[in-house]
Design a protein around this nucleic acid. Structure first.
Lengths: 162, 162
DNA sequence: TCGCACATGTAACGTGTTACATGATTCA
DNA sequence: TGAATCATGTAACACGTTACATGTGCGA
């Protein structure tokens, strides 16, 4: 894809929580190319403003798969849940339903244990604390509970082997 | 509170998705003081390493209330839901159940309409698209559905007037 | 007196934001 | 031919991260 194509993806789809600003996209593509993770090919080479099409390099694909295969940690769950979902969204690139099953099982387990911790925090709320903050904590608990249910249900899609 | 007190809050509570690193906290406090939003008072003034206690200034409280009273936009819902919840958590400072009710009603409405958009995106998924990405989108839908249910339920706590 | 928790800060670095600058292509 | 969309980029600035630096007070 070109930088412009990527900008449209980030601007128009649910991936929109990632920035589509040119000041983010173009320097990032330049960094990735410099790091050897993607390779750019000029489309209208003779033009003053050539279009550049990027594709992952072999090394880039390797690093990508490594990123996908990372274990799900408690920290991921509480601090970067969205990135975890992004990882899951690309799991098809691994082509292994065993790996995906492991991911979902670990995710469900970590989320469920985090829900327990949040419930403990709610119980420890001082008597005088305003309702609002307790309710906000409960909003978080409900979001995570929904995610745990989703993960358990999603496991059903990956019952078969490799 | 002192910078150290704040670091502990961010490190130990569910507010932990905000950074507790000294390189974030101390410069931020300095900026807020320079902007006139908080006022620092030195605790052990004669010491080489005095403790500094900060409290909001009148202007700071005004700006804070302004932040709390902002309307809930569609953009907030899709891009900074966590900040919305943080705003709600501090709504007690407004001391107006009318304002809180309006916040929750707007939130529920915007979340519900966003869920509809995400469902449309799911329907538009190309046939060949991998299950994983469709499931990831569904995870998001379920999180937002849980939030909408929470908001409707929370409204029950703010039925009375001002 | 040793170690830990308390307590505040800075410097280098990376990267995102906002705003600006430029040019190409397509179609009414 | 003018406007819209395609398309890429830079510069100033803000701010967070990581790592480092420093000092205080208390209890075993």
């Amino acid at each position: 894809m070109s930088g412009y194509d990527l900008r449209k993806v980030f601007a128009e789809t649910a991936l929109g929580n990632y920035s589509s600003s040119p000041g983010a996209i173009y320097p990032a593509l330049a960094r990735l190319e410099k790091a050897g993770l993607i390779e750019g090919e000029e489309d209208r080479a003779q033009s003053l403003r050539p279009r550049k099409l990027y594709r992952p390099s072999a090394e880039g694909r390797r690093v990508f798969r490594e990123w996908l295969s990372q274990d799900v940690t408690r920290d991921d769950v509480s601090r970067s849940f969205d990135e975890l979902m992004l990882r899951f969204a690309f799991h098809s690139a691994l082509g292994s339903s065993t790996a995906t099953r492991r991911f979902l099982e670990r995710l469900a387990a970590e989320v469920e244990s985090y829900v327990e911790e949040l419930r403990r925090q709610r119980k420890l709320f001082p008597q005088g604390a305003p309702v609002h903050s307790r309710l906000a904590l409960e909003a978080g608990i409900e979001q995570y509970r929904a995610s745990a249910r989703w993960a358990r249900k999603a496991l059903g899609h990956f019952k078969e082997d490799e």
